[in-house]
């Protein structure tokens, strides 16, 4: 299976680099002692540097075993960084540095395979830091919270709280998307209907919101997939241009079995 997994974690990692580059937030809550704040910056920088090296190596190395070794090293690296960030966060509870530490843990905990720590980070961020600017960089992962296996009740409660209490539109929208997709996959028919209702609400509640646009679009895609692209349904027709510039439709192939393959060399 050549499913493209690395670029995905890379995307998250790159987003984190942007986070590292951002200036330290000042005075949103009581100022943190200088030392832990600097330690956290160091943890993030070391992580960033080593992971950039590993990423480069992963691109250049062709040998499967060497690639696996690099991926293993990445996993160890991310585990250690998550432990370090958590240590800093716990040493200065309630401060903006703690919020940044927990934010790192929430972002990378899933990649480190540490669900307990990820849950803990989520709790801290919601209970003590709901107004922190770190949430700006977290919205992309909030949208995927429902897929992280953090425990059904916990996920649902966290997402509902974020929809209601977050002061940021992007986080509200991401949480609504996350809750909608999460509920839409549940067994109970009531929950599935509620999930679809949340996904539809996105387009209405955030229609004019630039920061929420991504989630509005993803919600539309998810609704389309749930209502039109399920096994047993007639496949929606599409029109496209081929490699010779000729237009064609899926319906041109009626009477034939068609394997539709979304792919890319990239």
């Amino acid at each position: 299976m050549e499913f493209k997994r690395w670029p995905q974690s890379l995307g998250i990692a790159l987003a984190a680099l942007a986070l590292c580059a951002a200036p330290a937030w000042v005075g949103a809550q009581e100022p943190a002692p200088v030392e832990p704040a600097q330690k956290l910056i160091q943890v993030k920088q070391d992580f960033e540097t080593r992971q950039a090296e590993l990423r480069k190596g992963f691109r250049e190395v062709e040998d499967e075993e060497e690639r696996n070794a690099l991926y293993e090293e990445f996993k160890q690296l991310v585990k250690q960084a998550v432990r370090d960030a958590r240590e800093v966060a716990e040493s200065v509870p309630g401060t903006e540095t703690a919020a940044e530490g927990w934010s790192f843990v929430l972002r990378y905990g899933p990649q480190a395979g540490n669900q307990e720590m990820t849950r803990k980070a989520l709790d801290h961020l919601i209970e003590k830091h709901i107004a922190s600017p770190v949430w700006k960089e977290l919205s992309s992962m909030v949208g995927d919270l429902g897929q992280m296996g953090l425990g059904d009740e916990k996920t649902e409660k966290a997402l509902r709280t974020l929809i209601e209490k977050s002061p940021l539109k992007s986080v509200q929208a991401a949480a609504m998307f996350g809750l909608g997709t999460f509920l839409a996959e549940q067994k109970s028919e009531g929950k599935r209907a509620e999930g679809l209702a949340f996904l539809r609400r996105l387009g209405k509640d955030f229609a004019d919101d630039k920061e929420a646009k991504e989630y509005v679009e993803r919600a539309e895609g998810t609704i389309f997939q749930l209502e039109k692209l399920q096994v047993g349904m007639p496949c929606p027709d599409f029109e496209a241009s081929d490699e010779n510039g000729a237009k064609f439709k899926l319906s041109d192939y009626k009477g034939k079995v068609v394997l539709i393959d979304f792919w890319g060399y990239w």
Binding site: K4, V257, F262
Partner: peptide, 18 residues
């Protein structure tokens, strides 16, 4: 179509059903 990863494959029968 909400394609979440690559490859994503849909197999459609001769009547056009997924």
């Amino acid at each position: 179509w909400n394609v979440q990863g690559y490859p994503t494959l849909y197999l459609v029968d001769a009547k056009g059903i997924i």
